[in-house]
Amino acid sequence: MKWTLPNILTILRLLAAPGVAVMFLYFTRPYADWFALVLFLVAAMTDWFDGYLARAWKQETKMGTMLDPIADKAMVVVALMVIVGYSSMSPWLVLPATVILFREVFVSGLREYLGDVAGTLKVTKLAKWKTTAQMIAIAVLFAQGVFEHYLVASTEGMDQAMVDDILSGREEDLHGLRWKLDGMIWSGHLGLWLLWLAAALTLLSGIDYFRKSVPYLKDDA
Rank of each mutant, 00 (worst) to 15 (best):
R178P: 01
S108M: 13
W196G: 08
G115T: 14
I138M: 07
I138E: 04
M184E: 12
I138R: 04
I136S: 03
G169M: 11
I136Y: 03
M158K: 10
M158E: 03
A137V: 00
A200E: 04
L177R: 10
E112S: 15
M135N: 05
D164L: 04
F147M: 08
W196H: 12
W179I: 02
A139F: 07
Y150F: 08
L80Y: 01
L121K: 11
L194P: 05
V123G: 07
A143W: 09
V78W: 02
W186A: 02
D116G: 14
A153V: 00
E104V: 06
H175Q: 14
L195H: 04
V78I: 15
W193T: 07
V163N: 06
A161L: 13
L95K: 05
I83W: 08
L101G: 08
I138Y: 10
P91E: 01
S187P: 03
K130Q: 06
L101R: 01
W92G: 00
E112Y: 14
H175C: 05
W193I: 13
D182A: 14
G188V: 12
A139H: 05
T131A: 15
G145L: 03
Q134H: 06
M162R: 15
L101S: 10
S154A: 15
Q160A: 13
W186C: 00
W179L: 03
T131V: 12
M162S: 08
P96W: 01
A153P: 00
M135S: 06
G119Q: 13
G119P: 11
D159S: 04
A161M: 12
P91D: 00
Q134F: 02
V99S: 11
A153S: 10
